[in-house]
């Protein structure tokens, strides 16, 4: 059951990710990316990360990607023009070689002793995350709040109308 679920959603994720890269229209890419994020959320659930799965859908798919779709709609961005230079010929073999090396290394380094079962790890609930967030990771948490403030100010400065 777990294997079947993993294979289904891994396949969806990979197909959607390929779609992100090959689609010429940005809105198709954006929707494929939402598909990747949704299937990753399911995989997170499989790994026992309930809170992260919910946050993935709420923050990534529900807020960040909506922002992308919004900007694409706002700019009415059309399909990408085909420019002369194509990196596909050197790129594709390199990609495959990279993936092969990666898969080999991963298989070597992580022997199949650790198997993922649904329910094998239950420490990913909201309470656990909150506890870790406000004890061990308090400083990074506060720093991210400042980061968000900086991002808000930056976005406003960039997007405001010129007052002359």
């Amino acid at each position: 059951m777990d294997v079947i679920l993993f294979l289904i959603f891994a396949l969806i994720a990979v197909v959607c990710a390929i779609n992100v890269v090959v689609q010429t229209h940005p809105i198709s890419s954006a929707l494929s990316l939402v598909g990747v994020m949704g299937s990753l959320a399911v995989l997170y659930l499989l790994l026992g990360a309930e809170f992260i799965a919910a946050a993935q859908v709420i923050v990534y798919a529900g807020a960040i990607m909506v922002l992308f779709v919004f900007v694409i709609m706002l700019l009415n961005a059309g399909a990408e023009a085909r420019t002369g230079r194509s990196y596909l010929i050197p790129g594709a073999p390199l990609l495959i070689i990279f993936l092969g090396v990666m898969a080999f290394l991963v298989q070597r380094i992580f022997p199949d002793t650790t198997m993922v079962r649904f329910g094998g790890f239950t420490g990913g609930g909201p309470a656990d995350i909150g506890h870790a967030l406000f004890t061990t990771y308090l400083l990074p948490f506060e720093v991210t709040s400042i980061l968000i403030l900086v991002a808000i100010i930056g976005a406003i400065v960039l997007a405001r109308k010129e007052i002359e």
Partner: peptide
């Protein structure tokens, strides 16, 4: 995570 599910 029922509440989060509805938000999602």
């Amino acid at each position: 995570i029922g509440v989060l599910f509805i938000l999602a």
